[in-house]
């Protein structure tokens, strides 16, 4: 029997009341993270990828907070917990954060405190969650630095972030996130700030550790090449919603949602068969502001396949449009049926 998803997010909404109205960066996320696999989360800037990651750890930046939905953490051994229902600053949430769910951030320079040694910041994880004494925490931290391939781990324990190169800092960040051997690792664009050769090394490291430790990874990126190389499942986000979710293979071979099709179409390719003077296809328009409240499908103003009278009226729901392939597009009868049922209800 295959175990169920370790994380399942249902109808997750994050918002805040601002001077200009209700800001809603997440508008109902449904997402499952299968156990011990890497899931990719892709989308344009501002679509809510990073907010999803933060909501998962219940660290949405103030004044943003989770307003609806559930995030169930279920390892199949201990009773399931709904993270969305926990107080973000309360002890139960803090006991999970860092120990069972950990996160890697985009900018390894600014994500470390500049005035504390990296050793101090890694050992802190162990001091909080494992009640180790300082000496034991130090030894474990050095082991972690070794594990992520930090040369001279023992000396680097006392180094400050500004003493390390970008790649080394990101390794230290990974060592910190993995210090308590978390079940789920959220990596928010872990390679965006690094140069290309280092990117490859860090991705390999993440893949190796994911397999060795049997971790569940949510990899957030806007780089489709990274998704193709490292993930087994992918969710595509648009404007605070997941619009397509399937296996990586199925997504690249047979994208269902017009948005995904547009994304894949706008990736430049080497040696394109249509000659060199061809223009790179780009998607029309840009992501509408988070305040905009559109009737119908959120993507219809930019969609080349939009049907007037349908897409600008009916709000689509997620539905299975092919085996193991879910999408949120009214052009598929399954989606239309599910959405019409919702409208009627």
């Amino acid at each position: 029997m295959t175990p169920g998803p370790i994380i399942s997010i249902r109808g997750l909404e994050v918002g805040a009341l601002s001077r200009h109205g209700m800001l809603r960066p997440l508008r109902g996320i449904d997402l499952d993270l299968p156990h011990a696999a890497t899931t990719g989360l892709v989308g344009e800037s501002g679509c809510g990828k990073s907010m999803t990651a933060r909501a998962l750890l219940n660290i949405t930046p103030s004044p943003m907070r989770i307003t609806a939905g559930s995030i169930t953490l279920d390892d199949g051994k201990t009773p399931p917990v709904d993270l969305a229902a926990l107080d973000p600053d309360g002890a139960p949430m803090r006991a999970i954060r860092g120990r069972r769910l950990a996160m890697i951030f985009q900018e390894p320079m600014t994500a470390f405190s500049p005035v504390h040694t990296i050793g101090n910041q890694i050992a802190e994880m162990l001091l909080i969650h494992e009640k180790l004494d300082k000496r034991a925490a130090r030894e474990r931290s050095i082991e972690m630095l070794d594990l992520v391939g930090m040369p001279n781990a023992r000396q680097r324990f006392d180094a400050h972030p500004f003493n390390l190169s970008g790649g080394m800092r990101q390794r230290a960040m990974i060592a910190m996130a993995l210090a308590c051997k978390p079940e789920v690792l959220v990596a928010d664009e872990p390679t965006t700030a690094l140069d290309v050769t280092i990117q490859a090394q860090i991705l390999e490291l993440l893949q190796r550790l994911q397999q060795e430790l049997g971790m569940t990874v949510l990899l957030i990126t806007h780089d489709l090449g990274v998704v193709a190389r490292t993930t087994s499942r992918v969710a595509v986000m648009y404007l605070g919603q997941v619009v397509e979710e399937t296996t990586t293979e199925s997504l690249f071979d047979n994208p269902k949602h017009p948005y995904t099709q547009g994304l894949l179409g706008s990736v430049p390719r080497l040696g394109s068969r249509r000659g060199r003077r061809e223009r790179l296809p780009a998607m029309r328009g840009s992501v509408p502001p988070a305040l905009a409240e559109l009737p119908g499908c959120a993507f219809h103003p930019r969609c080349p396949k939009a049907v007037a009278g349908l897409c600008d009226v009916v709000k689509p729901r997620m539905a299975e449009v092919a085996p193991g392939h879910r999408a949120r597009c009214l052009l598929y009868p399954e989606v239309l049926a599910a959405s019409a049922a919702l409208e009627a209800a």
Binding site: R54, L57, I59, P61, D89, M93, R94, A95, I96, R97, G98, R99, A102, M103, F105, E107, T110, A111, F112, S113, P114, H116, Q121, E124, M125, I128, H129, M176
Partner: peptide, 20 residues
């Protein structure tokens, strides 16, 4: 961002603010 990192560790909010 380092404040967010520290939050992601599960540090007590009060200790977090004083330490970082």
């Amino acid at each position: 961002p380092y404040v967010e990192t520290a939050r992601a560790k599960g540090l007590h909010p009060m200790l977090l603010i004083l330490k970082y």
